[in-house]
Design a protein around this nucleic acid. Structure first.
Length: 480
RNA sequence: GGCCCCAUGGUCAAGCGGUUAAGACACCGCCCUUUCACGGCGGUAACUGGGGUUCGAAUCCCCAUGGGGUCACCA
């Protein structure tokens, strides 16, 4: 055990996003690979948008994915509390220190004033930033403002013309100049610290050694670095991983379809598949094998192999991976996993009354056909839905040849069927009626299901049982 | 718009000065299968452009172009 410590620090303003999950995953993988630990911290300083229910949902999503942490909101640890709104007392000392040492000051500018300033700068084509109106306010002036009822924010005083270098583990040196950055707010007028401030304090107080987060935070990093310096903190390592984009190369958002982890969970994606898939978004293993177990990914993970370019979310590939993971499941296991989806089927009553053997056969028939678990609802249709015949189907069934074949079939069909029996029977039947397979299989399939495609006939027979098979074929023959 | 990041097939990506420029998904074809799917085999398809550096550049540098991010009392 070394002292490597990472954190995932979501704000509970919505369900866990695919991109957030990927950030969490990379943190987790890095920590696991290096025998370090991980912290889950909730950044809920946006009182407006944060909601308690999302906190639990995020925890559930991470847990579902198989991501674990050693310290955090739900498991505790020696650096708590892990919810920023519960850490307010921790921040005060730092604010006072910054003000005392001239690194920060109270600002009484109103929203309207700030907006006006921005508008003016925009018009003049200058850099839009806070110009430091309240920077040199005297104590007398400040008291006057307070008496007017103005509640101040606290701004960090940005030293001008300083070069700030972010040493990024995936991007290398990234250079910024402080002139582009205006004095920024570190404590809001409601007394709550802003993200850029709280994140530094918490990462420091929690002994975070590696900050692995999405690239959208890269431009914020110089601000944070200035705070680290003003407070005399050691700076952690940074790694900014690029974003996940939608198919139109824009940042993933709701209009790109399912973007939250729960949505994939509900659709019936396996956590192992999503885990594997997310790992492959921006990271690549050394070998050619891309289907990798949790342990294998942990073993191989390294920030050196994290790509710098953004990645378009590839649903096709996720689908393929998920199908692969489904195929790996044993029949029993798959049957178990399918229960909750099966219950949503209109044929649930029929499914639940199946005996164990027939149920296994049903699952075996579906095993290689499912992309995600929810597909099962559609895939079991041929087994249970009463056939509906279209014109083409009726035409085939009306042929004399077909009618005779079906009559013969009914005669030969055993009264007891298991999968092996059904297979051998189907293999031998065409010969026994001296017909080519072509004249037998497709008409039978159509008679039974009304469809030209679907599971193999022996599966159909076995799950339906001889009685139901007779009933359906009898029904067809009744149609004159 | 300023600043920052990025740039290899449709997508994910390997490559880190000398390769016939991997592999995966998707797509197409063939095979297996008297259905569809699964599976097997094969195929189409890429270094954004222009300048340098170098004996030699997908790899290094510069510019252009394109895409993305960020400039909040959001994180």
């Amino acid at each position: 055990m070394n002292n490597i410590k990472v954190r995932f620090a979501p704000s509970p303003t919505g369900p866990l996003h695919i991109g957030g999950a990927r950030s969490a995953l990379f943190n987790y993988l890095y920590a696991q690979n290096r025998q370090g630990s991980m912290v889950l911290r909730i950044e809920d300083t946006d009182l407006e948008r944060s909601a308690a229910e999302y906190e639990q949902e995020i925890i559930d999503s991470l847990t579902w994915l198989g991501i674990r942490w050693q310290e955090g909101i739900d498991v505790g640890g020696g650096n708590g509390p892990y919810r920023q709104t519960e850490r307010l007392d921790n921040y005060n000392g730092y604010v006072e220190k910054l003000i005392r040492e001239g690194h920060a000051y109270h600002c009484f500018c109103t929203e309207e004033e700030l907006e006006e300033e921005r508008r003016l700068l925009m018009e003049k084509g200058q850099i839009v930033k806070y110009m430091g109106k309240c920077r040199e306010l005297s104590e007398v002036e400040r008291n006057a403002k307070r008496e007017q009822g103005l509640v101040p924010t606290v701004r960090f005083k940005v030293e001008q013309n300083k070069t700030i270098v972010v040493n990024d583990l995936v991007r290398g040196k990234v250079v910024f100049n402080s002139d582009e950055i205006g004095d920024f707010i570190i404590v809001k007028s409601d007394g709550i610290p802003t993200y850029n401030f709280a994140v530094v304090l918490d990462d420091h107080d929690m002994n975070i050694t590696h900050v692995i987060r999405a690239e959208e935070h890269l431009s914020n990093t110089p601000r944070q670095l200035m705070i680290y310096e003003a407070l005399g903190f050691d700076v952690p390592e940074f790694a900014h991983i690029s974003l996940i984009l939608g198919s139109d190369r824009q940042k993933m958002s709701k209009r790109h379809g399912a973007t939250s982890v729960v949505q994939y969970r509900e659709k019936g994606y396996l956590p192992e598949a999503v885990f594997n898939f997310l790992a492959l978004m921006g990271w690549s293993p050394e070998g050619e094998e891309e289907i990798l177990s949790h342990d294998e990914i942990v073993r191989q993970f390294s920030l050196d192999r994290v790509a710098k370019n953004p990645a378009v979310f590839d649903l096709d590939k996720l689908n393929w991976l998920n199908a692969q993971y489904i195929k790996k499941q044993s029949i029993d296991n798959l049957g178990e996993m399918l229960q909750v989806f099966l219950q949503k089927s209109p044929h649930w009553d029929a499914v639940r009354t199946l005996d164990d053997v027939s149920f296994s056969v049903l699952i075996e028939a579906l095993h290689d056909r499912l992309v995600c678990l929810s597909d099962v609802v559609e895939e079991i249709e041929p087994f249970f839905a009463f056939p509906v015949y279209d014109g083409e189907a009726l035409e085939m069934l009306a042929q004399e040849e077909t009618r005779q074949m079906l009559a013969a079939f009914l005669e030969h069909l055993p009264d007891q069927l298991d999968l092996d029996l059904a297979r051998s029977f189907m293999k031998g039947f065409p010969k026994s009626v001296q017909l080519p397979g072509k004249k037998v299989y497709m008409p039978l399939r159509i008679a039974l299901t009304g469809k030209r495609q679907g599971p193999e006939l022996p599966f159909l027979f076995t799950v339906m049982g001889p009685k139901e098979v007779r009933r359906r074929i009898g029904g067809v023959r009744g149609k004159e």
